[in-house]
Design a protein around this nucleic acid. Structure first.
Length: 444
DNA sequence: TCTGGGGTCCTAGGACCC
DNA sequence: TCTGGGGTCCTAGGACCC
């Protein structure tokens, strides 16, 4: 099916034969399964994974979910549940999850000519080349292989649009389909509508809390109702995003596959502190440290920035203390990924927006307008010097290499602080099985 | 005591230009 | 008494995703 420009889409439901077939492969409780892949003792136990600073829940196992632990719950609020049900608790271990994700994605690439890595635990596969008969068996084959080779189980939804494919993987989870696969292809319109009538709009890709409330107010509660709503009205009332979702429910593809990741446009390091910070000195140290991390990420991606922003804020959940939040930004005359440049700029901005008398809880450094580092645009006023540029690049390359070889933070800038008593600690992190030689899994 | 981090896209409104 | 109109660009804020 060709993709119609939105203004040409007829307002009646369309059942055209699809020419795109997507399969969404979704890792089940991905972070939890990553932990379980390395620790057999928690295979049967309920498990949760906590976010940065062990602040709140970012992933739950099926069992933990059934006991009432939800994603986003503050850790301290689910303590009683953790004790009552003997839930295993982990701090998040992103390097481990990323590594497992890379393994899964590189295996998935064997099963399709075109793969879109959508998130750390999701990927869209182009299945258009398969016959209708092959779709389900191929899907099942993928799930089996990935499980055998990585220990990660997948839910795979197959459909002519991304929104429906995502829904298919949701059906697998809800109905606990053992094969791991559900396909919309080949179902009658009645069968599809029957499924859609049991899905709430907020469970759809592209519809969040806010939009769901507004849609409900208009009487649109289920996916089926959204599918048959007048799309011109949807566009006018809710914008192009909602209209696309509705069209995708009809099997009309409005969200193409992106097989080459777009170069990222911005990059952030923002973290809450382990305790509230009051004094400028400590804020400067934290912001310098975050700037250092931004520099590392920029150079990893071979990018440079011209725009840097910092923000600081108090704890919005603490109703007893005075609230303050502010940000400021500046632009560099020349693109840079040189850490001392970043630190200097960030410190100046913080000094500018800092106000005494507040308890600061979080801060961040954001760089945007990123460009590839090979694009060098000498400025008009002669501040640019090749020699200077090359020397700085060499310094940073050496810094990064030392830290890669001997461990993070072997070498760092004094401004980043040596004690960092404001830093959060992750108390329950599992070993870095796949990314640190000191912590590989040992079998005795 | 304790409430995550890191992204993208879309829209509305203002500034500016001819 | 009359007080353009339309296009484009930029920005901030809001919504979404995991």
């Amino acid at each position: 099916m060709r993709q119609l420009p939105l203004w040409q889409v007829p307002s009646v439901p369309i059942q055209a034969p699809p020419s795109h077939i997507f399969a969404l492969a979704d890792g089940n409780n991905f972070y939890v399964e990553c932990e379980r892949a390395f620790d057999l003792t928690i295979r049967k136990r309920p498990v949760i994974v906590l976010g940065n600073g062990d602040g709140c829940v970012v992933a739950t196992s099926r069992e933990a979910k059934s006991f009432g632990v939800k994603r986003g719950m503050p850790h301290f609020l689910c303590r009683p549940l953790i004790e009552r049900y003997n839930i295993a608790v982990y701090s998040s271990n992103y390097p481990l999850y990323q590594e497992m994700s890379d393994r899964v994605m590189s295996l998935l690439a064997h099963y399709t000519p075109r793969l879109e890595v959508f998130s750390i635990d999701e990927a869209y596969l182009d299945f258009s080349h398969l016959s209708k008969e092959q779709l389900i068996s191929s899907g099942q084959h993928v799930c089996r292989e990935i499980y055998q080779r990585t220990g990660i189980s997948l839910s795979l939804g197959i459909a002519p649009s991304k929104v429906l494919a995502k829904l298919g993987s949701e059906v697998v989870k809800r109905q606990r389909l053992q094969t791991g696969v559900f396909s919309f292809v080949g179902l009658s319109a009645e069968q599809i509508d029957e499924i859609l009538s049991q899905i709430l709009v907020e469970d759809l890709l592209g519809i969040g809390d806010k939009l769901a409330v507004q849609l409900n107010r208009e009487g649109i509660i289920t996916a089926r109702r959204l599918k048959y709503a007048d799309h011109a009205w949807l566009r006018h009332r809710f914008g192009v995003g909602v209209q696309r979702v509705a069209l995708e429910l009809r099997g009309i593809c409005c969200m193409p596959l992106h097989t080459t990741p777009k170069p990222r446009k911005a990059l952030t390091v923002s973290l809450a502190f382990g305790r509230p910070i009051e004094h400028l000195e400590e804020l400067l140290e934290a912001i310098s440290h975050y700037s250092g991390q931004v520099g590392v990420k920029l150079r990893q991606h071979h990018q440079q920035t011209t725009c840097l922003e910092v923000f600081i804020r108090t704890n919005p959940f603490d109703k007893r203390t005075a609230q303050y939040a502010r940000s400021a930004q500046m632009t560099f005359a020349l693109p840079t990924s040189y850490t001392p440049d970043l630190i200097r700029a960030a410190k100046a901005l913080v000094t500018q927006i800092y106000r005494p008398g507040y308890l600061y809880k979080k801060a961040g450094v954001l760089v945007s307008a990123l460009q590839p580092e090979e694009v060098i645009q000498p400025d008009l006023f002669g501040a640019f010097s090749w020699e200077h540029e090359v020397r700085q690049a060499a310094q940073m390359a050496l810094l990064d290499e030392i830290n890669r070889r001997y461990g993070r933070d072997t070498l760092f800038f004094a401004a980043q602080g040596t004690q960092r008593s404001w830093q959060q600690r992750a108390r329950r992190r599992s070993p870095r099985y796949t990314t640190n030689w000191q912590e590989v899994l040992t079998v005795t």
